[in-house]
């Protein structure tokens, strides 16, 4: 008789735990306004990434098409996987001295792991991390970017 009582108890206990679980899922079913998912491409306008989000390396230019990069190559040294290539050139300054300057700051987005070490190492703060994250392109060559704009030059007063 005791065994029968135990048996019935296990049945009811088991059903009870099942109902507890169903209560949780059911409570969410009947609260559809608690949805947590986002409708991604539709919410592009309102979707804002955090300002520290590491989406890509960019080189900001001011309104005179000037940047802060001296072409020192420290970012290239700090990059763990060779996604930055610096091609520098020498230019003549106004007082007739030769000075190193950036010709092309080549950035291979396809190889970048967004570790932030180049930005951290940059002595002049010429490169920063951008928040753009939609990088899909049809052609892999498009992932290789030149960060300094054509015709841009270094801003006044930037020292190495």
């Amino acid at each position: 008789m005791n065994g029968l009582f135990e048996y019935i108890k296990t049945v009811f206990k088991g059903v009870g735990t099942l109902l507890t679980g169903m209560k949780i899922t059911g409570s969410y079913f009947f609260r559809p306004w608690k949805h947590v998912t986002q409708q991604y491409p539709e919410n592009r306008e309102t979707l804002k990434m955090f300002d520290r989000f590491r989406g890509e390396v960019i080189m900001p230019h001011n309104e005179n098409n000037e940047h802060l990069c001296t072409g020192c190559g420290i970012c290239e040294l700090n990059c763990p996987n060779g996604s930055i290539e610096i091609i520098s050139m020498s230019v003549l300054t106004e007082d007739g001295k030769k000075k190193r300057a950036i010709d092309k700051h080549i950035y291979h987005l396809g190889m970048c792991t967004f570790c932030n070490l180049c930005v951290k190492a940059c002595p002049t703060g010429a490169i920063i991390m951008g928040q753009e994250f939609e990088h899909a392109v049809w052609d892999r060559t498009k992932l290789t970017k030149v960060l300094n704009l054509p015709g841009s030059k270094i801003a006044q007063g930037v020292k190495e």
Binding site: T25, G26, Y28, F29, P32, K34, H35, V36, T37, Q39
Partner: peptide, 10 residues
């Protein structure tokens, strides 16, 4: 749809 509602999805 039902499973999505249970899982707080759409």
């Amino acid at each position: 749809k039902v499973c999505a509602m249970f899982q707080q999805r759409m």
